[in-house]
Design a protein around this nucleic acid. Sequence first.
DNA 1: GGAGGAATGTTTTTT
DNA 2: ACATTCCTCC
Length: 768
Amino acid sequence: MQTILENLNPEQRSAVTLPAESALILAGAGSGKTRVLTTRIAWLIQTGQISPSGIMAVTFTNKAAKEMQARLSAMLPINTRSMWIGTFHGLCNRLLRAHFKDASLPQTFQILDSQDQLSMVKRLMKAHQIDDDKYPPRSAVYFINSAKEQGLRADKVMTYDPTSRQLAEIYAIYEQQCQRDGVVDFAELLLRTVELLTVHQPLREHYQQRFRHILVDEFQDTNDLQYRWIKLMAGSSAAVLAVGDDDQSIYAFRGANVGNMALFEREFQVRHRIKLEQNYRSHGHILDTANALISNNVDRLGKNLRTDAGKGELIRIQEAGSDTQEAHWIVEQIKELTRQGMANCDIAVLYRSNAQSRVIEHALFSASLPYRVYGGLRFFERAEIKHAIAYLQLMDNPHNDSAFLRVMNFPTRGIGAKGQETLQDTARQRSISLYAAVPHLTGKAGTTLSAFVRLIEAARFETQMMSLPELVQRVLEMSTLIQHYQLEKEGEDRIENLEQLVSAAALFLKEEGFDPHAPALLGPAGTAMSAGPALLQPGEPELIEADAALATLMSPLSAFLSHASLEAGDNQAQVGQDALQLMTVHSAKGLEFDAVFITGLEEGLFPHENSAKETGGVEEERRLMYVAITRARQRLFLSFSQNRMLHGQVRYNTRSRFLNELPDENVKWLSPQNNHSWFAAPKSAWDSNGNYSESFNFQTRSAKQPEHHIVVANDHGWRIGQNVQHARFGEGIIIKLEGSGSQCRAHIQFNRLGTKVLDLSVAKLEKV
DNA sequence: GGAGGAATGTTTTTT
DNA sequence: ACATTCCTCC
């Protein structure tokens, strides 16, 4: 035991050896958070306080869960597969599989990913003749997901105007359809589990007694529903160890609620709050900079990183004339770093939004520097893979209409739009799935669709004794997907991907501990999995607890399909041996590099202009900047550009307010500072709530701008952030200016009427 | 059913 | 600017 506690600093050690009660660990960037989490688990087991089955550890990403498992098995000779370590969604999936009857789900329920969810909503809106201009499907999806995150079903959503009533109606229709199809979306996995545990006392008490220790990673990123789930699983006696960093909360835009940290302290009667402030990653100048920047935020739980490493190099700041020049400067700096012996893969170029990568990529490519861009399509999101998966889904659960629609005519088999419509009408009239509606059709559509149904049935019959990889292989043949892509001009890659699906299936079996030869369609007891209608009677209280191993809960096929939805696979970007790393600041969270470039530090870009409209938006941007800075171990380079091409137009931006928040003694300006009073925002103009600062950016239509010439005065005298009064619209604030000369428009956020775009030569505005 | 042109919407992202 | 999706026409 001594060994695992060795080399921990006092803070880490006290976190690892906390008594069995709930506690909050404020883990700063680079403070050894994962190490503390895994060592805590190992210590609990090794000291005999708990058996592995009494522990649950929750993360947000599969990557984090895997890393935790890997580190644990390196520390302890235990089988981590049998432990409850996983993502929120993965663990809820397990619970629902074990108690599908009590959750009113079919045994083979399937998981919709975001794409599927959106197309389902689109489809339903069309079928119910709901105007998708007035109610964009995206916002309907957003409405549904946020309602679910608040724990609200369609009949419980507050409606106060025609719009919300319509959205609630869409939600209700969607909910019904999901239940009929036997599918659940991501939010539903959580909500179903929360409802199940709320309603089902014996089940709830069972798990509350089982898990004596619950550990939650990245607690600042939890949403309200996830918090409720943790609370239900913990009950009154489990010890919850919440690990997080409020300064790294950058996901409020998708429902994360930092407030959960404070709420947790109150509701779980937390007596121990431990701060991990010793940083093992960055040199002094970098940390000082990060600390100074983040101190501009109010309402922090409070934390200051320190390091034993030396001050290191000053942070370099470069002002470029244009985005192209910025990219060239980056190339030069990278060349110098690699000349000094730094590996490409230890250097990262970060940006606020993906659109910025293009120019940088171009410069790197021209300089023949190897790079890898993160983000983009992942394996299971590729169209050809989604098609193959849809066939597999139909074999597992033929009532999945989304899957049916995706492939009933792919590859094309002569089922036109009309036939599809007839089928959908029939199904809707009878309240049955498309699959079940096929026998009711007559005519040509009926014949071709029956053939399709027979294909699925034949596939099920033929493969009933096959292992999963064999089954996948056979389905690729029977569906004629491979054949189809062979005829396509550029189908090579797609065929390669489809073949990779077979090996992905084999790898999956191995990783999850399935018998590699077990029939893929049969459930754990060797029984056929029921793909029956979703309307199941709640069974008797079943206290057969969910085993952590998927192999005991699902057929290999069902398990593989959940895996495909829950873990979309790697971003299969350019895989270079020793490549530079390009990514957004968001995706850099949790990573670290010897040298980091943070680019595009301009008002409107970083902080992003949209953030000014949201409450706390600029604070979140500042945390994002904090995350970016703390990725760097030795060298940090910051850059901004006087103009850049965005959305096909040249934009003129002022430098980011964040640059001015960095202490002079930690930075070195490489370019002479441009100090036009209206060009660089004076320090005094910033407001830590961030609502506002002096800056301007406006767009012009001229296609080619001289690269270094930038000074275009805002001749109309208006500034972003100016409070204004309009005769009809009342008071507001200018949030954006565009155009120049006589064609200048201002975007104004009015206090009462929302945002309007006004022509400055026409509108009568007064400064307030 | 597929090619090709118009319309559209561009912050961040995991599950 | 550029990618994606929609829509029309053969």
